[in-house]
Amino acid sequence: MIETLLQGLLLGGLYSLFALGLSLMFGVMRLTNTAQGDFIVLGGFAAITAAAQFALHPAIAVLLLLPVAFGVGYALQRWVLNGTLGRDPLPSLVVTFGLSIVVQNALLELFSADPRSLDSGGLNTQSLALGAVNVGVLPLLIFGVAVVCTAGLQWLFTATKLGRAFRAVSDDREIAELMGLSAHTVYALATAIAFVLIAIAGSLQAMRTTVSPSDGPLLLLFAFEAVIIGGMGSFWGSFAGAMLLGLTQQIGFRIDPGWGLWAGHVMFLAVLVVRPQGLFPKTRG
């Protein structure tokens, strides 16, 4: 049972990486990125391609991918998504849904439907003995990255000038602009950071298991469930939501191999009914 719980927490670490970008974009600009899962898959394929094409160590490939992801996120928000923001959430939902279809089909065209993975340099076969339980090194590393990313994002939000700007435009865009902020630039920076997190999540997903062009919607579902369970716009909330989701799925898998995902969805629905605002809504300073 301890092994199941531990595996659930480690799986939750990966899910929290899926969720962080979504939580950030919603928290700052109330934008629900329905292409989140497909961008994660795109990040995975980008890391695989960079490592293969330039014969790079996977860690180097991932590190080189991060500034590219930052630039892509900035440009996407600045020149595409900013135009969809307003009181009506429908335009941004439609545009990100459209992007999700474009990304899926582009990946299918370029890479076929075959699943692929990123060579982790042997990390995915190594394990550590923690007492009577053996834990995979790669899942442990992913969990560590998730904790660092969540803590880093929380620190950015609460202790930096940029974080103040994020919270201010989220609270009251008009007054924030009266203070001299450009909401469009602040939004673009938020999406740029979200895309760095997406690239990290995609690369680690490709190392831990495989990615294929059709994986996006399922990854979006996990990210969405983690964010909703934790509370929209709350980073540690998303982290806690991801842990709960991972734990529930692992317990479901233990009871019956076909019940894992189903158990996670049931828990998500239960939270939605009992506490629709999530467990820890909205990050505060």
């Binding site: 919270r167 201010a168 989220s170 609270d171 007054i175 009266l178 001299g180 909205k282 505060r284 300073g285």
Partner: peptide
Amino acid sequence: PPGEIVKRGLAKVPEGRRLFPSLS
């Protein structure tokens, strides 16, 4: 734009105060 005007030297105390709730 409003941000450029405040940089020139015109600042406003808005009606209803409109403080940022997330900020101290």
